[in-house]
Simulated assay, not measured.
Amino acid sequence: MLAELSPSAAGVPTTPVRRPLHVVINAGSGEHDAQHTQAVLEEVFRAAGHPAQFTRLGDPADLPEACERAAAQAADDGGVLVAAGGDGTINMAAAAALRHGCALGVIPQGTFNYLARDHGIPLDAEAAARALVRGRPQPVQVGLVNDQVFLVNASLGLYPQVLQDREAFKARLGRRRWVAALSGLATVFRWHRRLRLDIELDGVRTVLTTTTLFVGNNRLQVEQVGLEEEVAQRTGRGRLAGVVTRPAGAWTMLWLALRGALGRLGDADQVRTFSFHELQVRVLGARRVKVATDGEVRVMAPPLRFAAAAQRLQLMMPAPEDRVPRE
């Protein structure tokens, strides 16, 4: 019977799989020095015996093509596409990995790093690299709005405008969390638009007016803002989390933001939360609408279909001993 078992099943140590690593580094993510990051990764990957090819980019406009090329190479040689950057960079890499059918590794370099934090990936580049070479691919849920991938969240209304204004503030003041908070305050006080949405959920259509529609695919983020426990627990497990707010003035929106920071957003009377697998949204009176996906703003034509994708992303997960606490 033992002769039929694989070496690992029989308790015999196996040689680690040394997959080729195709690394794309976004030099514009966070406050990290891209050249130093590459040097650190090269040393870790070399010591672990993983051949690695690096593409370091300074212009975000070059990211889609670089990710496509690296994903195609990873699919050809059985390797891993590795993204070093923030949630937006990882989003582009994830979309390419899904199209080409290769695994994705993550070296978090952004401001919030929700994907990495949710899955216990270390935020330090060296630690993340060590976790990567000892990790194994595991399937994780992907969200879709029409044909656009999102791993963390997607939204329309106030939140995409907050993101656009945040980038302008960061260009002047630097990529820091307090800068993001300051820009958010400025946007809330300037924002006066209302969205008229025709929403179809579980076969029931509802027309409502709101300042923003937020869809979450990241359980850590959903938990931290304080959505209902049932909604949070189902997020990432075949379901997405939906949040709509009633029309409100700037001070009320700031109060809601404070409740979210304190983990109590779901208790607010001005907020409706729900869990879903698929959501159809028509934006009444609008032919085009800004939609944010993982921090990147795009213009889309309604109707919008939000759904948990049937295809799963193969994400390189740390071994238990390499995982850091979710926080």
Score class of each variant (00 low, 15 high):
D77G: 08
D77Q: 01
D77P: 13
D77N: 14
D77I: 04
D77H: 03
G78S: 11
G78V: 08
G79S: 13
G79P: 12
V80L: 07
V80G: 05
V80R: 06
V80E: 12
L81V: 06
L81H: 11
V82H: 11
V82G: 11
A83D: 10
A83G: 12
A83P: 02
A83L: 01
A83M: 12
A83C: 13
A83F: 03
A84M: 11
A84F: 02
A84P: 01
G85A: 10
G85C: 09
G85I: 11
G85P: 06
G85S: 04
G86P: 03
G86Y: 04
G86R: 11
G86H: 10
G86W: 09
G86E: 07
D87L: 08
D87F: 02
D87W: 12
D87G: 07
D87S: 06
D87T: 10
G88N: 09
G88P: 12
G88A: 13
T89I: 04
T89W: 01
T89N: 04
T89Q: 00
T89E: 05
T89C: 04
T89F: 00
I90R: 01
I90N: 01
I90Q: 01
I90L: 13
N91C: 13
N91F: 01
N91K: 04
N91E: 05
N91R: 14
N91D: 02
M92Q: 14
M92G: 00
M92I: 12
M92R: 14
M92T: 15
M92N: 00
A93H: 00
A93E: 05
A93M: 07
A93N: 03
A93K: 01
A93Q: 03
A93L: 03
A94C: 05
A94F: 04
A94P: 01
A94Y: 02
A94Q: 04
A94M: 02
A95M: 00
A95R: 15
A95D: 14
A96Q: 07
A96R: 05
A96I: 05
A96C: 05
A96D: 04
A96W: 08
A96Y: 10
A96P: 04
A97T: 03
A97P: 03
A97M: 04
A97K: 07
A97I: 05
L98H: 11
L98W: 06
L98D: 12
L98N: 06
L98A: 11
L98K: 10
L98S: 02
R99Y: 00
R99P: 00
R99L: 09
R99M: 01
R99H: 15
R99C: 01
H100A: 15
H100F: 14
H100M: 02
H100R: 15
H100E: 15
H100C: 14
H100P: 00
H100N: 14
G101E: 14
G101I: 12
G101K: 10
G101Y: 13
G101F: 07
C102T: 15
C102W: 09
C102E: 06
C102Y: 11
C102R: 08
A103F: 11
A103G: 12
A103T: 03
A103R: 03
A103Q: 08
A103L: 07
A103P: 08
L104P: 12
L104F: 02
L104H: 02
G105L: 12
G105K: 09
G105H: 08
G105Y: 03
V106Y: 04
V106T: 03
V106E: 07
I107V: 15
I107H: 09
I107P: 09
I107S: 05
I107C: 14
